[in-house]
Design a protein around this nucleic acid. Structure first.
Length: 839
RNA sequence: GCCCAGGUGGCGGAAUGGUAUACGCACAACACUUAAAAUGUUGCGAGAUUUUUCUCAUGCGGGUUCGACUCCCGCCCUGGGCACCA
């Protein structure tokens, strides 16, 4: 008998699939389908394209790609025109660092890495449409990344601003937040400082509200929606203006009548309890008025200390509050109370107005500040258990709920009702204005690195910032010898004078190119669009192709990309939709469905890492066990969305399962060729049919809900049943088994399909349908309980009435012991399942 | 501190109101073998027990129900995310 040798089988079928172009999606698809073209309904399955690192493919990639490969293969068998593409998100720091260390051009390293990844992915039998492979570092690709940036620029959504960046004084480089590890530089360990630099910013905040609202129209996992909403952080409140009064101020300022301080609050209901104000050290209010503060020397000293503190130190200090008085006072409109104005670093200068009003009785942070500064605390909300006493302990600070007190016309009202009332009142009086604030900030789009897309702008001293004309795109990365940033933190491109110095496209005068490059996100913002029209390395952006496949029907990726990549790409897509760069018919959301996968951990449940030496190389697993085994194992290891540790011993189980199928079908072939059509049955074939159709049903449903682990387990149960009753097997049984197996173990299924001399390719057959009639068997196992405890199991015919079931139960010997001398109070009967006798 | 996910055999896990521990791994015994490996068969939560059966067990404590891993209330622990957002 032949033995199962995966390496032989797998290469063979991968070649056949590729030659026959089985997995290439057809343009255009249904929506704009014209004569003769694919009339099938489109289905766009998307996985996050990998960063081709030098380490090669990770078993974690395999897990998530196998999951979506199974879905794609099933959809194809269900008759869909499936687009399941792949590519490379190849700009990035590791490649640049490698280039710096070894002096090898990043594009050379990238080429080598993508070649490795491609080979690895192909060895796993994923049904990607390789003709649409994209690469973000290909100038033909980043031409469009630059084009998108120019559209943002032309629509006033890109602007330059001075902002504080993470600065490593040793590497002389600006670092992204992800490159800062515990306050230190990821490369050299030097403490990271803040440095102000001019950066290109993108106005994502303009889209904040739509990015929340439109989540209602998509099918994302609930936790993903929650994370997006929290990241955007919408809060509705009011900006209240207070007049400023102060002796020193009156002398220093001429327009004292109109001088105000504005604060943002979501809780104006507590405003009768306000006793002080605090401005953030980096707030506009402080910047504008610093020189006129009576206590300006103390304030300056405090600000210097506060800004020098790294984020780490701030967190380490915990909630300890510090601050300093400015010497100014604000007047509460409601009760004419004179409230001192402080500067304190617990207030964020960038959020809201950069200033807050302190209500120490009903905000824990305000309470802590009041205690530290020895300020008065006033109760304006009744506490727990009707507590109206003076607030002296943090535990008494009532924040969320309650009834108003000591608050004039608000007394006796619920805080939520009071909030509405006083907002209207303050607006009517002209003391403030309702406003919505977001935590989301504008997006820093500049990087001082080499290995990224050049920002296609030119600075002319006469015309200002001018866009590179579209016909001149792409602005290609010039070749350099050194990839290190310059001493003053400029991009390495800044030293290439020939490249930097250019002509102004507007006036023709001398001008300089922008030398910053774009962040990693730029290329991944729109890659799903590229797939719809990419063909063998050419990118012909056009509405017809985009309309054929957009929006993405199912997007799977890691939770780590929920807040950044997902949000950024949704924003960019909405923008492109707004300006008509994509067809209106596809809607303004790029992804209809988003799911996530869990990590594959190292043995023992810790993260896989080179330093721990517990990295599993997929190549080794493929070599030792086969691609199908790796696929089955990664699906079987546990729930798809959970982190599961790798277990090399467990892989053996998956291999045995595939061997069992191989042997089973080899036996079966031998059997039919010898029996001349007459087969003795051990059991009725109808019982095998019942198991088969149950399995078809379960596997079909489990794939849709990504419960791959239970789908594999159902397949195992089916194979075990087939194995045990081999003599009763029919050709049809085998056929269906191979079909539902094929998305999981495509090579083996294909091999056995051809061994059985079935027509065509397994992966091109229609997905089998289950027959409900075959599933329902005539006999059922009735569970008999007494007081909810299982006492007996009786085989009975299905559809039994309660009276008949009771009769049957009373004959049971086992029950007599329990029922003797007891009175039956109640009998609960669930048809075909259970009978519970209450005594 | 806040938000999310989870806690079930020696291990990965199954069961979302109705047989707890499916399926797989590990382990043990037996068969085949000169032997080993491979394969096959059987057993495998804990305790008590005279075959049989009983009691206990799904992080902990309560509750709802004829019946709870599953629903509700209060805690504990682990993992992930955010973190003074007014």
């Amino acid at each position: 008998m032949k033995k199962y040798i995966p390496n032989k089988i797998e290469k063979k079928w991968q070649k056949i699939w590729e030659q026959k172009k089985i997995f290439e999606a057809k343009n255009p698809s249904t929506r704009s389908a014209r004569s003769g073209q694919s009339k099938k309904q489109k289905f766009f399955t998307l996985v996050e394209f990998p960063y081709p690192s030098g380490d090669g493919l990770h078993v974690g990639h395999c897990r998530s790609y196998t999951g979506l490969d199974i879905i794609s293969r099933k959809k194809r068998m269900e008759g869909k025109n499936v687009l399941f593409p792949i590519g490379w998100d190849a700009f990035g720091l590791p490649t640049e660092n490698y280039a710096i260390k070894k002096g090898i051009h990043p594009s050379v390293a990238t080429k080598r890495n993508t070649d490795t990844f491609r080979k690895q992915l192909k060895s796993l039998g994923f049904s990607f449409d390789w003709s649409r492979e994209v690469n973000t570092t290909d100038p033909a690709y980043y031409k469009w990344t630059q084009w998108i940036f120019l559209q943002l620029f032309k629509n006033n959504l890109a602007y330059k601003d001075k902002i504080a960046i993470n600065w490593c004084s040793s590497c002389k480089i600006g670092l992204a937040n992800e490159e800062v590890v515990a306050g230190n530089c990821e490369r050299c360990g030097t403490k990271v400082e803040k440095k102000e630099k001019d950066q290109w910013m993108i106005k994502i905040t303009k889209y904040a509200d739509r990015l929340i609202k439109d989540l209602d129209n998509v099918n994302y996992l609930e936790k993903i929606k929650i994370q997006q909403k929290e990241w955007i952080g919408k809060s509705e409140g009011i900006n209240i203006d207070y007049k400023i009064e102060g002796q020193a101020f009156a002398e220093a300022s001429a327009d004292k009548q109109n001088k105000i301080i504005s604060v943002f609050t979501t809780r104006p209901d507590t405003n009768f309890g306000a006793t002080f104000l605090v401005a953030g050290p980096d707030s506009n209010f402080v910047k504008e008025n610093l020189e006129t503060f009576p206590e300006k020397e103390k304030v300056k000293e405090y600000i210097k200390e506060a800004l020098a503190k790294a984020d780490i130190e701030r967190t380490a200090e915990g909630r300890k509050k510090t601050g300093v008085a400015t010497g100014w006072y604000a007047i509460n409109n409601l009760n004419n109370r004179k409230m001192p104005i402080y500067v304190g670093d617990f207030v964020l200068g960038q959020f809201g107005t950069g200033c807050v009003v302190g209500v120490p009785g009903h905000d824990l942070r305000d309470f802590e500040f009041a205690k530290a500064m020895n300020l008065e605390v006033i109760r304006v909300v009744i506490g727990k258990d009707g507590d109206t006493s003076e607030i002296t302990d943090a535990k008494q600070v009532q924040e969320e709920v309650g009834i108003m007190i000591n608050s004039g016309f608000l007394d006796g009202k619920d805080i939520h009702e009071a909030t509405k009332l006083i907002m209207d009142y303050i607006e009517e009086k002209g003391w403030g204005k309702k406003i919505i604030n977001y935590k989301l900030r504008d997006w820093v789009f500049s990087r001082q690195h080499y290995w990224g897309e050049p920002i296609p702008l030119i600075y002319c001293s006469d015309c200002g910032w001018v866009a590179v004309p579209e016909k001149d795109l792409p602005v290609e990365l010039p070749k350099v010898k050194k990839y290190e940033p310059t001493d003053n933190g400029e991009s390495p491109l800044a030293v290439i004078e020939k490249w930097v110095n250019t002509k102004c496209p507007k006036c023709g005068g001398p001008a300089k190119r922008e030398t910053d490059t774009m962040p990693n996100w730029a290329g991944s913002n729109w890659y799903f669009l590229a797939y719809t029209f990419a063909k063998n390395g050419k990118y012909n952006w056009n509405n017809k192709d985009i309309e054929s496949f957009m929006p993405v029907d199912w997007y799977n990726g890691g939770m780590e990309h929920t807040t950044l990549h997902l949000l950024y790409s949704r924003f960019i897509f909405k923008f492109l939709w707004d300006i008509g760069a994509v067809p209106k018919s596809i809607g303004s959301e790029p992804y209809m469905k988003r799911t996530s996968h869990g990590m594959v951990l190292g043995e023992g449940g810790i993260k896989m890492s080179k330093s721990k030496g517990n990295v599993i190389n997929p190549d080794t697993v493929v070599k030792d066990f086969g691609a199908d085994t790796l696929r089955i194992y990664e699906m079987f290891m546990g729930p798809f969305d959970q982190a599961i540790p790798w277990d090399t011993k467990g892989v053996i189980g998956s291999r045995r399962f595939l061997e069992k199928i191989y042997n089973l079908i080899s036996n079966f072939k031998f059997q039919i060729s010898n029996s001349k059509g007459v087969i003795k049955s051990k059991i009725e074939n109808s019982e095998l049919d019942a198991v088969l159709h149950k399995t078809i049903k379960k596997v079909s449903e489990d794939i849709e809900s990504m419960r791959f682990n239970t789908a594999v387990s159902a397949l195992m149960i089916l194979v075990n049943a087939f194995y045990e009753y081999q003599e009763s097997l029919t050709k049809d049984n085998v056929k269906n088994l191979l079909l539902i197996l094929s998305p999981f173990a495509p090579h083996l299924a294909e091999e056995l399909w051809s061994e059985m001399k079935f027509k065509g390719l397994a992966c091109q057959q229609p997905w089998p349908k289950y027959d409900e009639k075959l599933i329902t068997s005539e006999k059922v196992l009735l569970i008999v309980q007494i007081n909810g405890k299982v006492r007996d199991k009786i085989e009975a015919s299905s559809g039994l009435l309660q009276t008949d079931a009771e009769k049957l139960v009373k004959e049971s010997e086992k029950l007599k012991v329990h029922l003797e001398g007891k009175q039956i109070r109640k009998i609960i009967y669930i048809k075909d399942k259970l009978i519970n006798i209450v005594i």
